[in-house]
Write a protein that binds this DNA or RNA. Structure first.
Lengths: 90, 90
DNA sequence: TAAGTATTTAGGTAATTAACTAAATAATAA
DNA sequence: TTATTATTTAGTTAATTACCTAAATACTTA
């Protein structure tokens, strides 16, 4: 979770997640949506992957990225613990 | 939300939120839980407040801080949009 | 094997952030 | 009013981050 919070702090990375919500995409397809360099996008993808928010899958020459929902679910539980219903005490 | 993601990236700020989950606390009481200086804690409180995660209330000489659950609820909605059930398409 | 495409790694720089100390502001109590 | 306590603001510094270009790696195709 620690890594996820840091990963989510950057707007470029949140936009990458938004794109992956629609479709699985290659690193190149993701980079094409931004005006920043491919190496920079590659760095962002690495950070998202380290945080467990995305996973990659190699398909020949390409690397496809897709969301991993596990950490999002953890995030939901975390945030719920701060709302009325989220109190685990009796 | 943009500010909230940035605010949540720091572990000190997340620990402050954990403390406020239990009780409303003054800035001094919060600072006492950490080994960092009071001015630094004050800065963190300002960031959390700007992000809408906490609110303050003056009581004489003291300033009490408490959670504001609104942004946590927004965060839950945001995270849910990335999980299976969260798709708004038909 | 050689050339081309996709992606990452390496190394460097500018901007941001988190911490500090010192000083300012606000309220209370003597 | 003066002293004390609580908290924030101001200014500085060290660490982190986000970006860049250049080079390396991996795969495909001729």
């Amino acid at each position: 979770m620690k890594e996820a919070f840091k990963a989510l702090a950057d707007p470029t990375r949140r936009k990458i997640l938004d794109l992956l919500k629609e479709n699985d995409l290659t690193a190149g397809e993701i980079a094409a949506e931004f005006s920043i360099s491919k190496p920079s996008i590659s760095q962002h993808l690495k950070i998202l992957k380290t945080a467990g928010l995305i996973e990659d899958e190699k398909d020949g020459q390409y690397i496809y990225y897709h969301l991993n929902t596990t950490v999002f679910q953890e995030l939901i539980s975390w945030a719920m613990s701060f709302t009325q219903g989220g109190n685990t005490d009796a």
